[in-house]
Design a protein around this nucleic acid. Structure first.
Lengths: 184, 184
DNA sequence: GGGCTAACGCAAGGAACTTCGCGTTAAAGT
DNA sequence: ACTTTAACGCGAAGTTCCTTGCGTTAGCCC
């Protein structure tokens, strides 16, 4: 998506209508059966408009994903490492198991990642790094970022993608326990 | 894919030609730009034949994947738990980072998994379970299957999907160390 | 070897997706 | 308010994908 030179009023309204149509359709069917003609019809926006603005279905859903991600809550800051880790794991598990889950996964994959999303991920990594450093400053033995990603984040994605039931709060706690145990 | 009632000679040859074309094309371009007309042209097999036998591109690549998986080496049996774990992790990392990696991931995902692949995964899980039990019988403190999947397999997939460089033997050893450390 | 018919090749037809030209609307700047 | 033109709506044309009917080839069974 190129820079909008006239983003006010009508364009913003069209964008919102199309985004809503995507979310709407995604709650009824899965991502593989989505199409631009279908989204155009549902949104009331003409096909040609969608094609001209986003070009492809992939670019459109990437835009929707970025819109959601930009509105999401920041990384937790509960005052304890365990609290932060659990809160993050539970939230991530919910996101990735929700109706937009496959889209989040797709947008983050290295082979399909946009520059915009890359920037987001780097920023997010910095926030997580900060979260871990806050714990370290409190004197809690803190894992490094890679360890956190491999022991917490990777299994969360793994369960959502390869198993039927996503990780719940109970299992999230198991993952956090495991990570904390490694630090002793 | 339904049961073949006349799988000899010509049909087998067609199947092989199509499979080779898929592998061939996949070494030059990525999976998202594959198409059945393209595969038909490359293989010398007529489009209509491909459509009639496999129906969709997804079913075709699933067939290719199953073919490869059925030829793969069994789970390692090196005589030590560490040896088995490292061998498995390195092999998995290589597979999932190779040109067929995205196809393996796709075939295994819960939302796109076929019955045939499900059967394969269950069988594979049993083999891994056996591998872990062999270690237990040798007196080595052995992790359970879930722990193995979360600490070893999940990070391997995670790296292949979300990072540029796949896990190498050195990093695989780090993962194995981590798992073994948890058992003490 | 001979009959039966599954599986294939071929070409036409249909369906879905995508692009394009042109007139209209309305956002942005003066 | 007025001008400029980006962005949209509309319909047609173009492209790619997928299906279908029919004749031909060759695998399987007797």
């Amino acid at each position: 998506m190129q820079q909008a030179r006239r983003p006010g009023g009508r364009s913003a309204r069209v964008r919102q209508q199309v985004h809503e149509a995507v979310l709407d359709l995604l709650s009824e069917q899965d991502w593989h059966s989505l199409s631009i003609p279908q989204i155009a019809e549902r949104s009331g926006v003409h096909q040609a408009t969608v094609y001209r603005r986003w070009g492809t279905l992939e670019a459109l859903v990437d835009d929707v994903v970025m819109e959601r991600l930009s509105q999401e809550s920041p990384v937790p800051d509960t005052g304890s490492l365990r609290g932060d880790l659990e809160a993050y794991a539970v939230q991530l598990a919910a996101d990735v198991a929700g109706p937009l889950g496959p889209l989040y996964v797709r947008a983050a994959q290295i082979s399909t990642r946009t520059q915009e999303h890359q920037t987001y991920l780097v920023d997010r990594a910095v926030q997580l790094q900060d979260m871990l450093e806050r714990a370290a400053k409190r004197g809690e033995g803190s894992p490094d970022l890679l360890e956190f990603m491999e022991v917490i984040i990777a299994p969360v994605y793994y369960h959502a993608m390869f198993f039927n039931r996503p990780i719940g709060p109970d299992h999230a706690r198991t993952l956090v326990d495991r990570l904390l145990r490694l630090r002793k």
